[in-house]
Simulated assay, not measured.
Amino acid sequence: MLITVSGLPGSGTSSISSILSKHYGMQLISAGSVFRSLAKEHNMTLEEFGHNAEKDSSIDLMIDERQREIAEKEENVILEGRLAGHMAKSGFSIWLKAPFDIRVERIAGREHSTYDTVYAETKKRELSESLRYKEIYGIDLEDHSIYDIVLDSKNWNPDNLSKILIVAIDNYNCE
């Protein structure tokens, strides 16, 4: 089975993907790992590759194409990334959401940064990504109609949220 986990920064996609990967014994491929792999292939540091990605939309396209290739080749894999649900044409697709202030608090905590700094950076990043995804793919990140399940992660810790998702996944396509 193919499972995709998507959501905005701080919504819990990395945590949930990791838990589901362990639970099902499935390989986890994150957009971040694809990004690191492509940086290495281009003999660049992550920082250099990141700066190039801001200026060159072909890098986003490479990351998304790599996830699309993996989704088409692999049978038991979890793809995690903002557009993973759009890149895979089949499987069980999850969108995790959470209010902006909660996501900012989570990001600030894991990056050991201030709320105000992360707030400004996240606003800028999400606006930039939203515009790029509309321009490149015609994707509106606020349209969740392609997902099998959309969950707000604000009220559950990752373990409890995973339990909900495991029940949904285990009963997917059941009659």
Rank of each mutant, 00 (worst) to 15 (best):
R103C: 05
D116Y: 05
D116F: 04
L61V: 11
K40W: 07
K55S: 15
R106C: 01
S57W: 13
H86G: 02
A84I: 09
E80D: 14
E54P: 00
A71H: 05
G50E: 09
L46A: 08
T114A: 02
K73V: 01
E80K: 11
K97T: 14
I102G: 02
S90I: 00
F92Y: 15
L46I: 13
S90F: 07
E54I: 04
Y115L: 04
S57M: 05
E69L: 12
V118Q: 07
I70A: 14
I107S: 01
V104M: 06
Y119Q: 08
A88R: 05
S93T: 12
R110M: 04
V34L: 06
K55F: 05
E54K: 08
A53V: 00
K89F: 11
L38H: 14
M87Y: 06
I59Y: 08
S37H: 13
K55L: 15
K55Q: 15
S93H: 15
R82M: 07
D101H: 08
F35L: 12
E75L: 04
H112G: 10
R103L: 02
E41F: 07
A98C: 05
K97P: 00
K40Q: 14
M87Q: 14
K55P: 03
G81E: 10
M87N: 12
G50Y: 07
E80N: 14
A71E: 05
R103I: 03
S113C: 03
L96F: 03
H42M: 04
I102N: 02
Q67P: 07
V118K: 10
R36E: 03
L79M: 09
F100E: 00
E69V: 09
G91D: 07
S57I: 06
G85T: 08
S90Y: 09
L96S: 08
R106N: 03
F49D: 08
M44P: 05
G109K: 01
R68C: 03
E72D: 10
R66L: 13
I107W: 11
I78T: 11
T117Q: 07
T114I: 04
A71W: 04
K89E: 14
Y115G: 01
D60I: 01
I107H: 06
E105P: 00
H42P: 00
R66W: 10
I94S: 10
F49R: 01
V104K: 09
K73T: 06
D60F: 01
Y119M: 07
R103Q: 04
F100Q: 00
A71L: 01
H51F: 09
H86V: 00
G81Q: 10
T114Q: 08
E105V: 00
M87P: 04
K89H: 14
R110Y: 03
R66K: 15
H51R: 15
A39D: 02
A71K: 06
G81M: 11
K89A: 13
P99S: 14
D64P: 04
D56L: 05
S93W: 04
V118W: 12
R106V: 01
G109F: 02
D56H: 09
K73S: 08
M44R: 11
M44F: 05
E65K: 15
L83Y: 07
E54D: 09
H51K: 15
V118F: 12
I94R: 12
G85L: 08
R110C: 01
H86M: 09
A98S: 12
K55W: 07
E48T: 02
A88G: 06
L46H: 07
